[in-house]
Design a protein around this nucleic acid. Structure first.
Lengths: 213, 213
DNA sequence: TGCTGTGAAAGTCTTCACAGCT
DNA sequence: AGCTGTGAAGACTTTCACAGCA
């Protein structure tokens, strides 16, 4: 339970799992570190070292069983269960997340949207009901919502962080364009901004950098 | 022009710029490394070291001029110009990107959508015209499109990579859920998958990890 | 005085290269 | 024979602590 691994390793384990899920769908039974690494854009040594942090899954001289490695990584990443999520504040990116079947399939299930605008409350977006902020504490508890997702920026984003925190949520994923300050240290708090990757591309293009990753 | 800095530093420079843009909007003139670092969730030494890779912008004993640091970082990141983008393949996430005013404001302008489905071709989504794949080589050249954005997965995603590459695009940003193989090494190629950050949160929750970043 | 810029030290991550097993 | 698992070496990144300057 108290597994301590580098954050970058966790990120890559999730990436390996993506590719394993695909190989598994395609019916592959066995994969070697060299191929899986190439598909993920990392070195074989990196892949084997990452796996060695969390267990020993391969067979020497043979490779890895796709299904069993997939199952083990799911367990390690906490992807062997259903998580209940709430979207705090509705915008286009938020709607895209609600519509994303792939997230549902992976066990990330949005069970509520919270918004402050009267005209949205009571509506149903991609099968998820929109509630007012007043209902948040009750619903977080009753629906066992553990992860709050924010796609907004600015003052509204900060209000949502406060509301989620006070409602007893366990984790907040900030997908908006600004870093926000964590309200409490016992709350898991991540910032992942899609739009930053546009800046990385623009830098690469204008600095004469080569291909990245 | 041949600036060689750690990728993680480029990422953080983009993050600093986000916060500077906000401070600038709020009318702040001066900021010290300690405050800017806190707002970005990094250490002051980190921030100063990152900046030292690309120049010297501060005044000792005083701090940084918000506007001039903002301008310098924009120049370094290639954000002092307009970039023309194409969306290759339309889905919910793609529509959300087209609608994202913040990207436009930052100089990332979608000028075309390409799709293989007859029923979409000729439509206009969030003011952007949908073209067929046949028109891609011509339009990439005529409209000076340098960055292709993909939000799809699977076989369609791989087809789009091929089509973009053959049309002479300079960079591809893969926002879909699977890593893809780069078609050529002279093409800038990035994978940034929002859905991976959900796995990181799920790991943090189930491993008893503390707050992250 | 006070905060930046930066060598040097500490810490972390990646790669190497081969032992260990099937 | 062949591929994984892993200590040890090497590369890279972060932090420290203070010189340098307004």
């Amino acid at each position: 339970m108290k597994l301590k691994l580098p954050e970058i390793t966790v990120y890559r384990l999730a990436l390996y799992l993506r590719v394993l899920e695909r190989l598994s769908r395609e019916g592959r039974e066995l994969v070697r570190s060299e191929e899986l690494a190439r598909l993920c854009g990392v070195s074989p040594a990196q892949l084997r070292k990452d796996l060695s942090f969390v267990g020993t899954f391969g067979v020497r001289g043979v490779g890895y069983q796709v299904r069993s490695l997939e199952r083990e990584l799911k367990r390690i990443l906490g992807r062997d269960r259903i998580w209940h999520l709430a979207l705090a504040g509705l915008n286009e990116l938020g709607k895209a997340l609600l519509a994303e079947r792939r997230l549902q399939e992976k066990g990330f299930r949005f069970v509520a949207v919270f918004d402050w605008r009267e005209e949205w409350i009571g509506k149903v977006i991609h099968e998820v009901y929109v509630y007012s902020l007043e209902q948040m504490p009750y619903l977080v508890k009753e629906s066992e919502i553990e992860i709050g997702v924010i796609t907004l920026a600015g003052e509204k984003a900060r209000e949502m962080v406060q509301a989620l925190s006070r409602s007893g949520i366990r984790a907040i994923l900030n997908l908006g364009p600004e870093p926000l300050e964590a309200p409490r240290s016992d709350l898991i708090f991540r910032h992942a901004d899609l739009t930053l990757s546009f800046d990385l591309v623009s830098f690469a293009l204008s600095s004469g950098y080569g291909s990245v990753r």
